[in-house]
């Protein structure tokens, strides 16, 4: 029940943020911090479940460690697309399609990209 409410809430938030479009401008550091918190949140990105990254405690090992991201994904849109819908790159991947399935909002994915570029 709580989970459903949370999901509805996050969807609502996503819609509200979405409707304001790119009008919301974060200072870089703010976006990075926000991205990190979304990435680490178990109900949101839950990235640590599968990836070793940053100072995250008890990381999983399903996916590759998230290091040198800017070097590995110099094209920002490419990295973003891999989070939005990784199935586009590998139809068998076990990584969830965070954007396509509305797990994260566009704004949250942007913030995660911002954060990943610091790794």
């Amino acid at each position: 029940m709580i989970k459903k409410t949370l999901m509805a809430l996050s969807l609502a938030t996503a819609m509200v943020l979405g409707s304001f479009g790119g009008g919301v401008a974060f200072a870089d550091e703010e976006a990075v911090n926000h991205g990190k918190s979304v990435a680490f949140n178990r109900q949101k990105g839950n990235c640590l479940s599968c990836h070793m990254m940053d100072d995250g405690d008890q990381p999983g090992s399903q996916g590759p460690p998230l290091i040198a991201m800017k070097l590995r994904f110099p094209d920002r849109e490419d990295l973003r697309a891999r989070i939005y819908n990784p199935l586009e790159f590998n139809p068998n991947t076990i990584m969830p399609p965070f954007g396509l399935h509305n797990i994260l909002s566009d704004e949250e994915i942007d913030a995660i990209v911002e954060y990943l570029y610091t790794l």
Binding site: Q58, G60, S61, I94
Partner: peptide, 17 residues
């Protein structure tokens, strides 16, 4: 978007956390 096999085949033996 997980199949049963995604976790217990492909992911078997690897950690979630």
């Amino acid at each position: 978007n997980f199949s049963c096999f995604d976790c217990h085949g492909t992911g078997a033996g690897k950690g979630v956390r």
